[in-house]
Amino acid sequence: MSEHTQLELLEIQEPGPWRETWYNLKKNRGAMTGLGIIIFFILLALFAPLVAPQDPLDQLIEARKIPPMTDGYILGTDDLGRDMLSRLIYGARISMVIGIVSVGISLFFGLIIGVVSAYYGGILDKIVMRVIDIMLAFPYILLTIVIVSILGPSLTNAMIAIGISQVPKYARLVRASVLAEKENDYVIAERALGASNLELMFRTILPNCLSATIVQTTLGVGEAILSSAGLSFLGLGAQPPTPEWGLMIASSKEFITNAWWIVTLPGIAILLAVLGFNLFGDGLRDILDPKMRS
């Protein structure tokens, strides 16, 4: 056909959608800083046994409350003589797991509920949305506390509680973008080709709704880390002697006047981790939200 030759004149190499996102991301300084922090913490978490100078649970009664940069303890020791640096590194491991697992739980249920509810609409959608409204009306921390008290305080249960308490947020977000996306002709076109409802929901519509969800997921990991620290601080999450950042703050709060580093350093660790995810999430939003490409 004669159009072939014309088409070849238009040969301009354009990148695929993911590569374009990465290209734009590289130019966003905030997002790259955030990504750097996230990678740093993930590496720490992965290689904790190799990086940590000591066992985080090893107590040394004669070396209690040693200030940072003294006697070979880079970040000092806590009130039981455990190495702060090692505890913080192992803490990264716990926080990353909490963040990813609990967001994973929220995302899994949120996506299914949101997609199904928006796709089918009608009565089902109305019921689901009212339930979600009720869940959102509960103060978030109260909801988490209720769930933990039912399941019993432990790190695993804290993850589940945080995960469940965030499901409504994801369900709503996904529902909104599915509602917008399912009006597009390509959905009708693929239905006309004989695609099943399942295929339409999860292979056709969902991938086009992911950009908003990815942003929320990234921000959500930071939030989850913060929440788990809060729960542990209240005694509803990790139990001693687990080197969890929130728990570390809680169990050493009385030393704030005479051994500041025991309280402050885990706080800074939390701050950095959450900041990393927030910076990255905000950067992603800037890139993905103005509906991808022109």
């Binding site: 959608p17 390509y186 009708i188 076109a189 004989g194 991938p207």
Partner: peptide, 23 residues
Amino acid sequence: DMKEMTKNIQMIFQDPYSSLNPR
């Protein structure tokens, strides 16, 4: 049967931008 029927009946859409899945 309806899925079989889609082999026989098809549609071409107005908007060449929204009728193709961008991903």
